[in-house]
């Protein structure tokens, strides 16, 4: 389990990184963030980039700041840093909770927020979180920067809207009121989840004013449970309405099975965890009934 040979550069600015990426576009250049997914893939020789551009020395990508109602997280912010950052606890508690499910603490010490999103593993937590929160992803390339909505960002398993020569630089998360909850089912602690649920529910006088629910692990990309969101919105939530919302969402699912759970089991678990996620978010929404 050793990687094939590759060239390596460690730029210190986004401009330099983008320039290197452009210059080596023909060499199957890849950006290296925390290395917690890419390096194992290289060791298994499932990924064989000829040129590796290490982003870990780019200081400007390691900051968390708030711009009005938007939380801006540099792509190279370490997951363990984000997990405990006060700005994130306030601005995006859903993200903070989800980070606690990302593998194990030593992996979160190296893994980055942007790396996990750019890697776009269908079972990963953070893609579902940015989808649920309607976040925006900022991409930098030789021609400048552009912003892509999370809903348009994930294009398939391990594939995103990041173009050739581009890197993910920032995650922009609008502040969301209401109860935030992230729950997931994994067979062992820290392993990839079979199903993850990211839910944000806002109540207004006991009625659901807005619900955002995203699922991981049940499709090639993280998906919004639109049917459940619609079913919940405008209702005074109770067991029956939650069940109806869950049933509506599950009816649209057709998860692929694998060695850890077949299609039926994953659907069963999605049903259970959707309910748990919605209930937990409601319990935190402050003003239920």
């Amino acid at each position: 389990m050793k990687p094939p040979p590759f060239q390596y550069a460690a730029p210190t600015s986004v401009a330099e990184a983008v320039e290197l990426l452009g210059a080596h576009a023909d060499d199957d250049a890849r950006a290296l963030a925390g290395g917690q997914s890419l390096v194992p893939l290289m060791n298994f020789r499932l990924a064989q980039p000829a040129y590796l551009i290490d982003l870990r020395r780019i200081e400007e990508l390691t900051r968390i700041r708030t711009e009005g109602d938007t939380l801006v997280i540099g792509a190279m912010v370490r997951q363990s840093h984000a997990e405990h950052a006060p700005e994130i606890a306030v601005g995006a508690p859903l993200l903070a909770e989800a980070l606690g499910y990302v593998a194990h603490p030593p992996i979160r010490n190296s893994g980055t927020v942007g790396g996990s999103i750019a890697h776009a593993d269908p079972a990963a937590e953070l893609p579902a979180v940015v989808l649920a929160l309607d976040a925006e992803l900022v991409l930098a390339g030789l021609g400048g920067t552009r912003t892509v909505a999370a809903a348009d960002f994930f294009t398939g398993p391990f594939s995103t809207a990041i173009g050739s020569g581009e890197i993910l630089t920032e995650v922009r998360i609008p502040r969301r009121a209401g109860g935030h909850a992230f729950v997931e089912f994994a067979r062992t602690h820290g392993n990839f989840a079979l199903v993850g649920v990211a839910a944000v529910v806002e109540l207004d006088g006991g009625t659901v004013a807005r619900a955002s629910i995203a699922l991981s692990g049940v499709a090639p990309v993280p998906v919004r449970a639109t049917a459940a969101e619609e079913a919940l919105t405008g209702t005074v939530p109770d067991d029956a309405s939650i069940r109806a919302a869950v049933d509506a969402a599950v009816a649209g699912l057709s998860p692929a099975g694998d060695v850890h759970g077949g299609r039926e089991t994953r659907t069963d678990i999605a049903r259970s965890y959707l309910r748990r996620g919605i209930e937990l978010a409601l319990s935190r929404a402050g003003d239920r009934r």
Binding site: R187, L194, H260, G261, G262, E264, T265, D268, I269
Partner: peptide
């Protein structure tokens, strides 16, 4: 496993 147990419960 969840698969085996769920199958038995179903």
């Amino acid at each position: 496993t969840p698969d085996r147990l769920r199958a038995a419960i179903r």
